[in-house]
Simulated assay, not measured.
Amino acid sequence: MGFLKEFKEFAVKGNVIDLAVAVIIGGAFGKIVASFVKDIVMPPIGVLLGGVEFTDLALVLKENSVGPAGEELGPVLLTYGIFIQNVVDFLIIAIVIFLAVKGINSLKKKEEVKPTPPPAPPKSEVLLEEIRDLLKKDKL
């Protein structure tokens, strides 16, 4: 029973729940970015480059061949177009995360910068200052 209790304490901690929510939102955000890159960013770039479909870009390492049992084997491809698309996905996600972290950090800095009034001096110090001022006044 101790294991279940420990697991329950671990699972309901705020950090674990926050992490789970972040992973779920991150997965959904990744799908949105992938669709954005594939369906909105890459087609215009392909048109500008002469009608290139990036997912079709590949280098043929080995042509079609026949296997030992007589079955036809497809070509061996180095699909660098998909890699380029994934790099663009990564760059967009990295930029968005950078901007989000930068925004959060600037909000934290604004909270930290709020000036706090200096603490009032002790009564003994105030009295000594008054005595000093009176002594100066008497000498003049």
Score class of each variant (00 low, 15 high):
3 F>E: 11
1 M>Q: 14
62 K>W: 14
67 G>Y: 15
26 G>E: 09
68 P>C: 08
91 L>P: 08
79 T>L: 01
75 P>T: 02
32 I>R: 10
59 L>N: 07
11 A>T: 12
1 M>G: 08
121 P>M: 00
35 S>T: 03
66 V>N: 11
140 L>P: 14
48 L>A: 13
58 A>E: 05
68 P>K: 15
104 I>F: 04
123 K>W: 02
38 K>E: 10
109 K>F: 00
47 V>S: 10
65 S>Y: 13
33 V>E: 00
115 P>M: 10
135 L>K: 08
101 V>L: 08
108 K>W: 09
32 I>M: 00
129 E>C: 03
97 I>M: 00
87 V>M: 06
66 V>S: 14
94 A>C: 06
74 G>L: 12
6 E>I: 01
71 E>F: 02
43 P>I: 05
18 D>K: 03
117 P>E: 14
5 K>F: 04
17 I>F: 09
49 L>R: 13
30 G>M: 08
99 L>P: 05
27 G>C: 05
79 T>S: 12
53 E>K: 02
52 V>C: 07
71 E>W: 07
116 T>V: 07
68 P>N: 12
83 F>R: 09
58 A>R: 06
124 S>F: 02
22 A>N: 15
111 E>S: 04
86 N>A: 00
103 G>T: 11
35 S>L: 01
119 P>K: 00
6 E>M: 12
22 A>W: 12
1 M>E: 14
123 K>N: 06
8 K>R: 13
42 M>N: 00
49 L>Q: 09
126 V>I: 04
60 V>E: 03
85 Q>R: 11
14 G>C: 01
123 K>A: 11
59 L>I: 09
120 A>P: 14
29 F>C: 09
